[in-house]
Structures are given as C-alpha cells and as structure tokens.
Design a protein around this nucleic acid. Sequence first.
DNA 1: TAGAGCCTGGACAACGTTGTCAGGGGAATG
DNA 2: CATTCCCCTGACAACGTTGTCCAGGCTCTA
Lengths: 344, 344
Amino acid sequence: MAETARHSEPRYGNRPTMKDVAARAGVGLKTVSRVVNGESGVTSDTERRVQEAIEALGFRRNDSARVLRKGRTASIGLVLEDLADPFYGPLNRAVEEVARAHGALLINGSSAEDPEREQELVLALCARRVDGLIVIPAGDDHRYLEPEIAAGVATVFVDRPAGKIDADVVRSDSFGGARDGVAHLIANGHRRIGFIGDQPRIHTAIERLRGYHAAMEDASLRVDESWVSLGTTAPDRVATAVTTLLDAPDPVTAIFSGNNRVTVTAVRTLAGRKRPTALVGFDDIELADLLGITVVSQDAAALGRTAAESLFRRLEGAGGAPDQKVLPTRLIARGSGEIPPHEG
Amino acid sequence: MAETARHSEPRYGNRPTMKDVAARAGVGLKTVSRVVNGESGVTSDTERRVQEAIEALGFRRNDSARVLRKGRTASIGLVLEDLADPFYGPLNRAVEEVARAHGALLINGSSAEDPEREQELVLALCARRVDGLIVIPAGDDHRYLEPEIAAGVATVFVDRPAGKIDADVVRSDSFGGARDGVAHLIANGHRRIGFIGDQPRIHTAIERLRGYHAAMEDASLRVDESWVSLGTTAPDRVATAVTTLLDAPDPVTAIFSGNNRVTVTAVRTLAGRKRPTALVGFDDIELADLLGITVVSQDAAALGRTAAESLFRRLEGAGGAPDQKVLPTRLIARGSGEIPPHEG
DNA sequence: TAGAGCCTGGACAACGTTGTCAGGGGAATG
DNA sequence: CATTCCCCTGACAACGTTGTCCAGGCTCTA
C-alpha cells in the first residue's frame, strides 16, 4: 500500500497484470506471457492453470506496454477532410477493412480542410507511433513529415498529392474526369458552360479546372472568366454563383460542378428555377440516379483500398521510389447532363 | 552496437529519445521531459538548448511510453455498425469534435452488424486501454464488457441499449418517431399500411415496429401480419417486399420504412411503378428534400455529441447510476407522406 | 546406470517515459 | 562573510510487457 501510495493517479483502475496472473496460477511471469501470446513451450496443464487465472481475474493484456516493448503499434492513422462528408464514408470503410485484414486498428480524424489542424493531427498520430499514415491533404506543404517518414512511418496520400515532399499518392483522374464531363456537355450542344469549384489551394480543384479548360479548348470554345467560380463550396456561395451564372446578360446554358457538395447545392438551386439547366457534377451522390443527375463518378472505396494496400506493402518492406496511382473516373449519364441548351 | 544487436527488430526506425536529446543538449533526461511537457522550473537558456536539440534530432515524444507511465491514453474508441453508412458520418464527426475538445484521439471501427466482430473490436480497444468507449451495439449481450467497465473503462451505448448489462445509453425516440410517422399516414387517409424494417434482434427495429402497431391501434386499425416485413435491409429483399406489398390482392396504400437504407431502396422501387404510393421513412437522407420524401428525422450529430459528452463527464469523475437519454425525432413532411390512398 | 540432449519454466533486463526526491548553486539576509 | 532558502537540475525507480538466457528435470540411448 505504502509503496503505491506515492503515485497520485489510480492507474487503469488497478487492472490485473501478468504478474498477478502468474502469482495466482503459481507460475512465472514469462509463462503467462507465453500463454497469452500462444507461444509454444507450455505444458497443456500449465496452460490450463494460467487460462483459469486469466479468466478469474479478468486479465487483458496491456497493449501499451506491448507496443513499447515491440516497437510496432499495429495501428494506422487516417486523416481526412471531414468524417461527416458522405464521400469519405466508403473510403474510410475500405481502409478499415484492409487494416483489419492486417490486424491493425484505425485511428482517424478530420482536418476540416485546415492545414494547421491537419499537421496537429498527423503529429499526434506520429507521437502514438502509428505504423503508417493515410492522409488526405488539406495543406500544401508537408515537409513537417520528413523526420517522421525518415524514421520509418509509412505514408500514403490520397485524393491529392503531398506538398513539397515526394511520397506515394493514390488519386482519381481529376483532370481526365472533368474533361470528359465537360466534353459530354459540349457533345450535347452546349457552348457556354460554367464551372463552380473548390479553392485553388486544393490540387483536385486545379486539376478539374484544367480539365474544364482542356475540354473547352479541344472544342475551340472560348471561356469567359466570369464563368469560373472558385473557392465556392459553402451552400450560400454556391447558390449565389449559380444564380449569377444564369442571370447574366449572356448566361451559360450548362454548369459543371467541381465536387459533391457543390453539386448538391447546385441541384437544389436549379430545382428552384423555372427553366431546367444542364448540369454535370464531379463525384457521385446517393440517390443521384433518382434525381437524374449526370456525374463523373470516382470510386471512393477503391481509392481507400488501394491506398491502404500500398501502405501495408510498404510496411511489409516494399521499397522503391514513391509511386503515384491514378484511378480512372466514369461518366454516368442520368439526364441532367443531356438537357439541351436553351436559347438565352 | 553489440548491445543493441540482440534485438531482432529495428524499433521505430531508431527514433531519437529523450535520452538522445538530453545528451545532445548536455542536460539531464528529466529536464528534457520538463521542456517537452511545458513544466515550469527550467531556465529559459536551458530550455532553448533543449529545444534546439529537439529540432536538430527531429525528436517526437513517444506517447506509448507516456501512456504506460501515466495510465491514461487520451483516446476513446467508437464502434459503429458501418463507417460507410451515411447515417454514421455526422455521428462520427460529432464524437470526434467532442474528443478533440478534450484532447483525445478517436479510434474507430465497424462491427458490420456482427456481434462477434463487435466484441473482437471492443476488446482490442480495451487492450489499447482507451479511456472510454462509445458503442453502437450489434449484439444483444454485453456481459463481456463487465470486467472492463469494472476496471474503469467508461462506456456509453448509442442508438440502442446495451444487452444484459446496465449502462449509459443515448438514443432516439424510435417508438415515438415511428408512431408519429405512421399516424401521419393515417391522418392522410391511409388504412392499410405496410412496415419494412430491420432484424428484430436490433432494438431500434423492435421499437419502431412497436410504434407502428401503437399508431394503428390508436386509430383502431387492423394490422394484417403480411404487411410487416422484418430482417429486410438488403436491396433485393426490400425491393421484393415492396413489390409483394403492392401486388397483393388487397394491397397496402402506404409504406413505413424502418431505416435509411430501406427507404432508399423503397424509393427506387416505387419510382419504377406506375402509381405513386405514399411513403414515410425513418432517418433523413441527403437530397430527400428534392425527392420529396417525408421522413422521421433523427439528429445523428446530436446523438454523437450527447454520447461523447456523457462519456467525458464520466471520465471526469461523474458518478451516479447509468442514465438513459432519449432524443426526440422530428417529422418532416415533404410530399411522399401526403400522397392520398388510391383505391386497390 | 550414466550421459547427452531436449523441453519447460523463470530470472532479468530493456523499451521510453514520468514522479519522487535529493543535491548543488545562487541570491538574499543578518 | 556566513547562513538560509529557494530554484533549478538530474539520478533513480517504476509503468507492464517481451526477448534472452540459463537452470533443472525429463527422456532416450549406449
């Protein structure tokens, strides 16, 4: 009593340790460890005694201590932009399944698109000594990760490449997808097409904008700079952007939206207007089939799965230069993208 | 060299430790600890030297060791049914925000509605010595948690109560919500109403079914047992159930669906039929406003927030008997629930 | 029956950190 | 100038586990 009274905190509510189990079973400490870890070299009789003691005491191995000793935590970190965004649900789940298959737990958190918060979260995960990291970058400078990567933390970036460091990336073909989507509108007769996308700080936003410009250029179409609205994801701003595009003196006849959140608001806004306007959105949305929304779909689950598999390959020792995997997108025509242009 | 060669694994890729920092800064180990933890009692000159050494070596505190010593991990576990289910996104996010406000990390995983997998996951989290657990139960027997709870792992169940143990619960008013939803259909003239819900093993499914029966009884309406379909969430089964209900000789004129996944499939199936059929669903769905789907909405984010706050209150020492919080639901009329009955 | 070899079990150190405590040096005071 | 006190610093043990190594007992063989 006196010897533990020195410590101020109660410590895990006084859980039994291997020492306690050993005492109760009348065996040595290491024998308990062997039983718990299923190692060989324990008589079945001894094993039974140990098991009984474990049962009786409600012992559960302390993985913190184990981790400290072994140097591997069997956990990986996932930093995404917003856990509540439906786009990341399947991605999250896919990563989890791969982690589970490798016996690892998943620690995750949202950066809320804030580079500072991303760094804070990533470093907290590194302090926990996660074996690996999957990061959907919010910031554009990841040099703060250099010491971590050097120290052996496997890192894979998803959706967007890392900033200012060379690392594995798994992403969708934003450029090609946007180009295809806009080309689809052009094929349906549109000549004046608006683009509403995310902040240009974000790599995917730039790529999609590039795709937009490429498609327009391929068709020798002029782009009026007033047609492009960037940094626009908040619902009110998207609504304003849509209205502005359509109420201009020489309005666009179609809109390409740069991500799922923009699409949702755009659909709502368009629904409130008299005349139907063509729309193609990047990212699929649940129930988009019923609403007839034409989208450029990216496979979020495949992104997560691919990234997690790359990560574990690295953890298993795969070397080689950082590689970049680009997954294809798929245009799904459902009606909104096939609406013909109306005369202004 | 010879003394470390005994160990087989490279150990965190040889990261610097406080000892290394101390040696480089020419100070004692404990002084480094003090600086890292921002404790008082260090000259600013000494602190600067230590900071420089930390910077130069790329030192990052090993939280595993810290956890072992301190007995608190500053992490909580969240076990939900499916990370990919859009219903859990906002819940997940809300829990994360509360955890973040308390300086804790979130470890999470999916039970996939499998009780065994739930237990496996929960116990893995306990082995990590998470400070607390938030569990959306898949199983109906949680006695396996008794030693953990006794050992001080704060536990809050969400969405459904724990099985065979007494613990804190935060859930929506499934009974009342379903009753209101069905009553709404009755108020719109329906007399024959179908119910499609989840497995009766799941508490919310039973409650919602009870609500359905209560509303029917309140209106003195007979319920034909063929109108009730349970254990039906897989898309093909839901589609079959809907079709069966509507193609019966004496068909129902309205359907109440027991959760978001059922609703989605039901909407799809109904969309493929000639005649519109009234529908009210439990759980809101993104874009349901545009589709005009009347729902009984529960606030997933509030569930998560409330649960996490209860958890941290317990962690901060709040005692008292386990309590049950029931959050209200809200009927949102959008059209599908106001379709009048058609004559069979 | 004695020796060799194998199998089981336990003592011990180490993982990297933090709590405790004691010592040393400087400033303030008589 | 001596003494007291306080502040800063560092040595040390402990957290609970696992890797290493050694001892003792057993079996098997010559």
